[in-house]
């Protein structure tokens, strides 16, 4: 699903430049649930941003589902993001003046779906994350866990190939974190490829594979015994 070869990325900081990714080789198979770990500054978010086409690598090859991702302009990147990728953020990033349903429907709007289809589809995804009854509520009326579930529904609504979660549990307490991870595991079991960036070992252990980054290179890449979140819920 994801093929990355010799990926480099550096940021200009005034006159000096900061080499963040120093040659990453990284492949993800279809249906995998992968945790990317590392301390802050290790480059894990940068890697996720490049995979998410929010950022562009300086050097290297990136293929998503057989499509080489290169020469991206903003418009093309936006269209690829809309078609291939679903994002879940640490801070949920819901639009605060739109209801849960409208938030979920937004990527479908940009896909050009008809209003009725959008409503139906978004409602079914809200149902999937267990928030059908909260469809008309604004984000401010939802708890953190509920917000993150709305965000997951939104990420799924556009039927992406890959779900990218950047510290999805970073703003949640342990119990809610496990609930969210349970949902992520369920989605993974249905066949969705998921990348989770985290620095919490217990969250990482709920994935099938853990990739550790340090100073811009992969230092460890191992399969783990997956802990089911459902048992903590």
């Amino acid at each position: 699903m994801i093929k990355i070869n010799n990926l480099h990325k550096s940021y200009k900081m005034g006159s000096s430049s900061l080499h963040v990714l120093k040659g990453i080789d990284f492949n993800v198979k279809d249906g995998e649930l992968v945790a990317i770990m590392g301390s802050s500054g290790s480059g894990k978010s940068t890697l996720l941003n490049i995979v998410g086409m929010l950022d562009i690598a300086d050097k290297g090859v990136y293929e998503l589902d057989g499509v080489p991702i290169e020469n991206l302009d903003e418009t093309k990147a936006a269209q690829y993001r809309n078609k291939f990728l679903g994002f879940v953020f640490q801070s949920f990033n819901l639009i605060n003046y739109k209801s849960a349903l409208e938030n979920v429907a937004l990527p479908l709007y940009y896909q050009g779906l008809k209003r009725k289809d959008r409503q139906e589809k978004s409602l079914s995804y809200l149902e999937k994350v267990g928030l059908k009854d909260w469809a008309t509520h604004l984000p401010s009326e939802l708890s953190g866990g509920q917000k993150q579930r709305v965000a997951i529904a939104r990420a799924l609504a556009s039927q992406p190939k890959v779900l990218l979660a950047d510290e999805p549990t970073g703003a949640l307490d342990t119990k809610t974190s496990y609930e969210v991870m349970d949902l992520i595991q369920q989605i993974n079991q249905e066949g969705k490829t998921i990348l989770v960036v985290t620095h919490e070992p217990d969250i990482a252990n709920m994935c099938q594979r853990v990739v550790k980054l340090k100073d811009g290179v992969i230092v460890e890449d191992k399969k783990v015994e997956q802990v089911l979140a459902a048992q903590y819920v």
């Binding site: 929010l54 903003e74 418009t75 936006a78 269209q79 809309n82 990033n93 937004l106």
Partner: peptide
């Protein structure tokens, strides 16, 4: 800024 960033992350093109 944030809202527009979200919109673009989930697929709004600059033109939109």
């Amino acid at each position: 800024t944030k809202e527009l960033g979200i919109r673009r992350a989930i697929g709004a093109t600059p033109a939109e």
